[in-house]
Write a protein that binds this DNA or RNA. Structure first.
Lengths: 219, 219
DNA sequence: TTATCGAATATTGGATACAATATGCAAGAA
DNA sequence: TTCTTGCATATTGTATCCAATATTCGATAA
């Protein structure tokens, strides 16, 4: 048959739609740390019953994006400076390794896509855009590693700290510095030097960690 | 007040009880790969409605232990040889790093506990016991790293591959070899040598990977 | 006043009922 | 026969309703 078909079995259920919307709102910081998520209120917003809302909250809890107490409900889960520090260390470890695997397999299309995100990043003017292009730049470079388990963990980890990443970028000269470091990482990828790409990625993440901790501890 | 209190707010909901029971059954291999998990059947087994069963299945899906298709239901999620290989690489990366952080902080109590698991491991006589003591031996050694995010990821990863780990141990001389390697790792910890403990842990995991891949590829 | 108790309200957890979809099977057409 | 089609059944997704618990707020007593 010659029909553009969509696999209806994989269309989203109400629970998944709600999950993705809430996740986006949390990640983008529209819902603040500690803010309660009332089932009834969310159900009304999406014009459903509370059942799919509860499933969505269950998913978010598994991802560590909300914290739930029995009979008390769910709140947006924040992150302590210690946790943040540890997560940045974890990122350096895993993302450094992933990019090392990716560089030897990297296609010209991937490099072009990364360069486009890099350009968009430096032209962006607000935190959400910075965060978005920053993240896409990095994950694009990881893609060709074809390490699906690693990539899944990286995405979940980034979801968890996206808000704080954006805050760090918004610091004075956060964007300028990231921009320069991105350029160096991309150059290493283009040069086909996995070790250098890995080392620069680790440095980039650990530098951001120091920057962020400064921010978190002061305010 | 001087009363032994339990925080009732943290007692398990029906969904959590069902989740843990199903997780245990999947991890221990009582539920085979691809086996369908019928909501109705599970609900009858636990004498509840399907609502908490669905929450439990949602949690398991987030952990990657079951795969769900809309209107078709959930099945126990297996793992391909490629995925297994990648997950063992991931384990080597993360667990190697974690033990390096743990060794300088390791207490005598931890070392004693690890040694007890090691003894129990070599005396065990069936796959479930091997798997159990093996896992506890390793996670005990990781504990003092106090890297809670890393540890959470490690536990989830181990949950995901526990079945295959056990299969690998059950291979001819799998236990004997693991036993010798565990002894060496523990010795490095007792000697307070993080780099050696890390290197041995990585070797241990990557050796098991080769062993397992052989098993998976042959059938 | 201030602390404590209790009822009223709000909110979550779970059961039941209904709707949407998948699956299996029988009947008919090629 | 073998393939298709439509119906009956099975299963999942969601709505509605009830139960269990938390929270708020006013009344009362010290």
């Amino acid at each position: 048959m010659q029909i553009d078909s969509v696999n209806i079995g994989q269309t989203a259920s109400a629970a998944v739609i709600i999950y993705e919307a809430l996740k986006k709102a949390i990640i983008e910081g529209q819902l603040k740390d500690g803010e309660p998520l009332r089932q009834d209120e969310i159900a009304r917003m999406f014009n459903t019953s509370r059942i799919p809302v509860r499933e969505a909250l269950t998913m978010l809890e598994q991802q560590g994006l909300v914290a739930t107490q029995r009979y008390k409900g769910a709140v947006v889960a924040g992150i302590s400076p210690d946790e943040a520090a540890e997560i940045w260390d974890f990122r350096a470890l895993v993302e450094g390794r992933v990019i090392e695997e990716a560089v030897p397999r990297m296609t010209p299309e991937t490099l072009a896509a990364a360069r486009a995100h890099l350009a968009a990043f430096s032209e962006a003017t607000n935190p959400v855009e910075w965060g978005d292009h920053n993240r896409r730049f990095h994950t694009t470079l990881y893609r060709d590693s074809a390490l699906s388990y690693h990539l899944g963990i990286v995405e979940k980890t980034l979801d968890r700290v996206d808000r704080y990443l954006r805050a760090q970028l918004s610091l004075s000269n956060g964007v300028a510095r990231a921009d320069a470091e991105h350029e160096a990482i991309l150059a290493a990828c283009e040069a086909g030097d996995p070790a250098r790409a890995g080392a620069l990625t680790r440095q980039h993440i650990l530098g951001a960690k120091a920057n962020l901790l400064d921010l978190l501890r002061r305010g």
